[in-house]
Design a protein around this nucleic acid. Structure first.
Length: 726
RNA sequence: GGGCGGUUAGCUCAGUUGGUUAGAGCGUCACAUUGACAUUGUGAAGGUCACAGGUUCAAAUCCUGUAUCGCCCACCA
C-alpha cells in the first residue's frame, strides 16, 4: 500500500474499473432487492458543470450507493437537457461576442449550430460527471431531444389536447422584446421602477364633465376602447355614457367593473386590452357593451405602429411616452406624480416585458378536463396532501401549496429556434363546419396528407416550439419508457433530488404531468437542496471572483474531499456553504482514512492467522460502539439527513477510531508476545476499519474503494466495496 | 399586497418528541509530537440562545407580540 493516497492516479482508475464492471446498471446487480430509482435532473448542456452540479451529484450518488449496498436494484438514470430558451440565450451571447448577429442567421443553420454546441457540451459534461464519481447507469443515458423522448412528449400533448386541457387562444402573454419570444409567468421577475403616474381628463361626449383616469402608459391611449370605473367610485353615475379619447377623439363607452381598484389612482381605468392583461379581462367581461375591437399599437420590437397615429408612429415606447406627454399636456387634470411600482422584466435579460395579445398554446391548470376528472392542479395538490409525495424538508410543502393555490394557465409556446416544435398543423381552407369547429387545428408531428376534417391539402405547420419545461416536466416517465420493462420496474421513482429554485418550473410540472400521464406519482420523495454559497454566505458569481470550480478543486484536493465538503454543514433545503479551506480540511480527512487503513493493514500478521483471538472488554466495547454508530448513520441516511450522517462518520472515524481506538491498541500490536491478544487487537481494528469504509463509501467513494482493494482477500467478500453489503 | 423562513461561540452552522453542565467544524491560545498521518495529538478560552411577555416542576425548543435580516409569490393601471 502506497504511503500516500494519490487521488490523481487512483480516482480515474477506480471509476474506470467500476464502469467496466457494468455494476452501475441495476440489471447486473446480483440481488433480489426492491428497485431504488433516482432520475438525474438533466444538466443544461450549454456550459460546463459548476459547484451546484457537484452538490447534486454528491447527494444523489450518496443515496444511490447507499441503496446499492443495501441490496436494492439501484438505478440512477443520467441525462442532459437541451434547455431550449436557456441555451438559446447562452448561444446568443456567444454570437454577440463573436460579432455575429443571431437574427441574421437562417433558422435551420442556427438550429444546427446550437445542436452541435449542445452535443459537444453534453459530451464534456459526461466526463465531468464521471470525475465527480457519479455511479449512474450510462447505458440508459437520455437526452431531451432523443426521438423517443420527443415521441412521448407529442403523445402527452395530443392527449392533453383531446382532453381539453391544452388549447390555442389569443390571450395576453409576456413578450420579451430582446429575445423575441413569449415567456411563462414564471420566467418573468418583478423589479421596482420609478415611473410617472399621469392624471388625464377624459371628457364626456355630451357635456363638459370628465372622468379622471390615472395611467403610467399614456402612449397606449390611442388603443383605448373604453373607460372602466369601479361600481362604487364617484364616476359610477357616468356609466353608460361616452368619453372622448384625449388623443384621437374616438368615443369610448364608460363601463363598470369591480376589477378596477377603488382606492388606486382615481378609481377609473382606461381600457387597452391589447397592452394590458387586466384590461383584456375587463374587455372580455364587457365585450357586448364595447363596440370597437381592441387594436395593437406596439409591434414586436417595441415600436409604435401606424395605428398609434402619425405623431407616435415609429417611436420606441420610451420616446412615445414623452411624446404622448407633450400631446396630452392640455388634458392633464393635475401634475404627474413620481410613482414607484413593480414592473415585469425578463428573468434573463432584465428588459421590460411587454404585454401582448398573441395566438398561443396554453395548458389549463385549474379547470377540469372534458371528462370531468380532476384538473392538473388538483392532481398535484391531492398527491401532496395525501402524503403520496413528501418534501424534504417539509416546509417546501407549504411553499408548494401556496403556489398551487393561485395559478394561471401556462403558456407553452415559444418563438425560439432551439426546441421541440409543437406538433400541430393548421388547415387554411376550413372548408366545412367540422373543420371550422376545430379551428383547422390538426395535432400531428408529421405533415398529414390532407386535412382530416375537410380534406384540404393547404396545411401550414405550427412554428412555435414548446416551453422546455413542458417536455422536461415529463422526464421521469419519458426516460423510463425508452427501455422496455423499465417503466414497470422503476416507476414511480423513489427520490427527485433537485434545487429548490426550480420547484415550480420543474417539480410542480413533473408532478402534474406525471400523474396525468401515468396515473401515478413520478416520485415519492422530493429532496430539495439550496444554492451553494461561499464562506461569507455570498452567492458565487464570476464577477465577484468567488466561484469555486468543482473540477479544479477536485483535481487539487481530490473528489472525495469536495464531495464531503458539500454535504457536511448544511441541512436539507438550506444553502450549503463551501470554501477552499473547508475542502482542504476534508482533504486531510481523506488522508486520515488512507493512513488509518494503512496502519491497520501494516499491523496484520499472517503468522497469527490461525490463532484464536481473546477479546478484551475494551475490544468488545469498541465493537458495540461501532454498531451504535452504524445504527445512527443508518437512521440519518434513511431520513435524508446526509449532513449529520457525514458528520457522525467524520467524527467517529477520526476522533474515536483513529485517535482513541487505534491509539489504545498500539501497545498490543508489533512485538506483543501474547498472540491471542495481538490477534484480538488486529481483528478488532480490521473489523471497525472495514465497517467504516463501507459507511464512508457513499460519501467518499474513491478513497474508500482504493483502501478496500488493499484489504486481505479473506475480508473482501465482493469485487468492489461499491457492491459490498452495507 | 400575500406567503415562507432565519436570528445560538469571532466565522459557518447543528440542536430530533420541552428534560443533566447548549454542541460541531474552522479560527484563537497553551502544551506535546517526527509519528500510520502533505502533519497530528492533548487541553483551554469563548454563548443573557434577537427582545418582551406567557404556558410549565422544567423553555434555545411551545404560545403571543416586537425588532431585524433574507427568500418566494403577485394582472393596483
Amino acid at each position: 500500500m502506497d504511503t500516500r493516497y494519490n487521488h490523481k492516479e487512483l480516482e480515474d482508475k477506480t471509476y474506470e474499473s467500476w464502469e467496466k464492471s457494468g455494476l452501475f446498471n441495476p440489471d447486473n446487480l446480483n440481488t433480489d432487492g426492491e428497485p431504488f430509482t433516482v432520475i438525474m435532473p438533466p444538466p443544461n448542456a450549454n456550459g460546463s458543470l459548476h459547484i451546484g452540479h457537484a452538490l447534486f451529484v454528491t447527494l444523489q450518488d450518496i443515496m444511490i450507493r447507499y441503496a446499492r449496498m443495501k441490496g436494492r436494484k439501484a438505478l440512477w438514470l443520467p441525462g442532459a437537457d437541451h434547455a431550449g430558451f436557456e441555451t438559446q440565450v447562452v448561444y446568443n451571447k456567444k454570437l454577440e461576442k463573436e460579432g455575429r448577429s443571431f437574427w441574421k442567421i437562417p433558422k435551420e443553420e442556427l438550429y444546427e449550430e446550437i445542436k452541435n454546441f449542445t452535443l459537444s457540451n453534453k459530451q464534456y459534461m459526461k466526463g465531468q460527471l464521471k470525475k465527480l464519481g457519479a455511479s449512474c447507469d450510462w447505458s440508459r443515458e437520455k437526452f431531451t431531444l432523443d426521438d423517443d423522448i420527443k415521441e412521448v412528449v407529442y403523445e402527452t400533448f395530443k392527449s392533453l389536447y383531446d382532453d381539453g386541457l391544452v388549447y390555442r387562444a389569443e390571450q395576453p402573454v409576456n413578450w420579451c422584446i430582446k429575445h423575441q419570444t413569449t415567456l411563462s409567468d414564471l420566467e418573468i421577475k418583478h423589479e421596482e421602477k420609478t415611473d410617472k403616474l399621469y392624471y388625464i381628463k377624459y371628457k364626456l361626449s355630451d357635456s363638459d364633465e370628465f372622468i379622471e383616469v390615472a395611467t403610467t402608459r399614456p402612449e397606449t391611449i390611442p388603443a383605448d376602447i373604453a373607460v372602466a370605473v369601479h361600481p362604487e367610485s364617484k364616476w359610477s353615475k357616468l356609466v353608460g355614457r361616452k368619453a372622448i379619447n384625449p388623443i384621437n377623439s374616438k368615443e369610448l363607452p364608460v363601463i363598470s367593473d369591480k376589477l378596477v381598484e377603488l382606492d388606486f389612482g382615481t378609481g377609473a381605468l382606461k381600457i387597452t386590452p391589447y397592452h394590458d392583461s387586466t384590461d383584456f379581462t375587463i374587455w372580455k367581461n364587457h365585450e357586448s357593451e364595447i363596440e370597437s375591437k381592441p387594436i395593437s399599437i406596439i409591434d414586436q420590437y417595441g415600436k409604435m405602429t401606424a395605428e398609434a397615429g402619425s405623431k407616435l408612429e415609429g417611436l420606441k415606447i420610451k420616446n412615445a411616452r414623452s411624446q404622448a406627454e407633450e400631446i396630452l399636456k392640455e388634458s392633464f387634470s393635475r401634475e404627474p406624480e413620481e410613482y414607484k411600482h413593480q414592473v415585469a422584466v425578463c428573468y434573463k435579460c432584465g428588459s421590460i416585458i411587454e404585454p401582448r395579445v398573441m395566438m398561443q398554446w396554453f395548458v389549463k391548470m385549474t379547470e377540469k378536463s372534458n371528462d370531468k376528472k380532476l384538473s392538473l392542479r388538483d392532481l398535484a395538490v391531492n398527491a401532496v396532501k395525501s402524503g403520496k409525495i413528501k418534501f424534504v424538508s417539509d416546509r417546501f410543502e407549504k411553499i408548494f401549496m401556496h403556489w398551487m393555490s393561485n395559478l394561471r394557465d401556462w403558456n407553452i409556446s415559444r418563438q425560439i429556434v432551439w426546441g421541440i416544435r409543437i406538433p400541430a398543423w393548421y388547415c387554411t381552407d376550413q372548408k366545412n363546419d367540422a373543420c371550422r369547429k376545430k379551428n383547422g387545428i390538426i395535432i400531428s408531428n408529421n405533415k398529414p396528407d390532407k386535412c382530416p376534417y375537410c380534406g384540404s391539402t393547404d396545411l401550414i405547420p405550427e412554428e412555435d416550439v414548446f416551453d422546455t419545461w413542458f417536455s422536461s416536466g415529463q422526464w421521469p416517465f419519458a426516460t423510463l419508457m425508452s427501455k422496455p420493462g423499465d417503466f414497470e420496474k422503476f416507476y414511480p421513482t423513489d427520490v427527485m433530488e433537485t434545487g429548490w429554485d426550480i420547484i415550480f418550473f420543474w417539480v410542480a410540472r413533473m408532478i402534474m404531468l406525471g400523474i396525468y400521464r401515468t396515473g401515478d406519482v413520478p416520485f415519492r420523495t422530493v429532496y430539495l437542496h439550496g444554492l451553494v454559497r461561499d464562506k461569507d454566505r455570498q452567492k458565487m458569481s464570476k464577477s465577484k471572483g468567488n466561484v469555486i470550480n468543482p473540477l479544479e478543486v477536485a483535481d487539487i484536493y481530490g473528489t472525495d474531499a469536495v464531495r464531503i465538503s458539500l454535504v457536511i454543514g448544511s441541512v436539507a433545503g438550506n444553502d450549503p456553504v463551501i470554501s477552499e479551506d473547508k475542502i482542504k480540511g476534508y482533504r486531510n480527512f481523506t488522508t486520515k482514512i488512507w493512513n488509518a487503513a494503512r496502519f491497520v493493514l501494516m499491523n496484520l500478521d499472517e503468522k497469527i492467522d490461525n490463532i484464536e483471538p481473546v477479546f478484551t472488554e475494551e475490544d468488545k466495547a469498541d465493537i458495540e460502539r461501532l454498531n451504535g454508530v452504524k445504527k445512527e448513520v443508518e437512521s440519518q441516511l434513511d431520513n435524508y439527513d446526509f449532513n449529520h450522517a457525514g458528520e457522525t462518520l467524520y467524527h467517529y472515524f477520526w476522533h474515536e477510531f483513529a485517535d482513541k481506538v487505534i491509539e489504545s491498541k498500539k501497545p498490543r500490536l508489533a512485538d506483543n508476545p501474547n498472540k491471542e491478544d495481538k490477534k484480538a487487537a488486529t481483528e478488532t481494528l480490521l473489523k471497525i476499519l472495514v465497517a467504516s469504509l463501507k459507511m464512508l463509501h457513499p460519501f467518499m467513494p474513491f478513497v474508500t474503494e482504493s483502501a478496500y482493494q488493499e484489504l486481505p482477500e479473506k475480508v473482501r467478500t465482493k469485487e468492489f466495496l461499491m457492491i459490498e453489503n452495507w
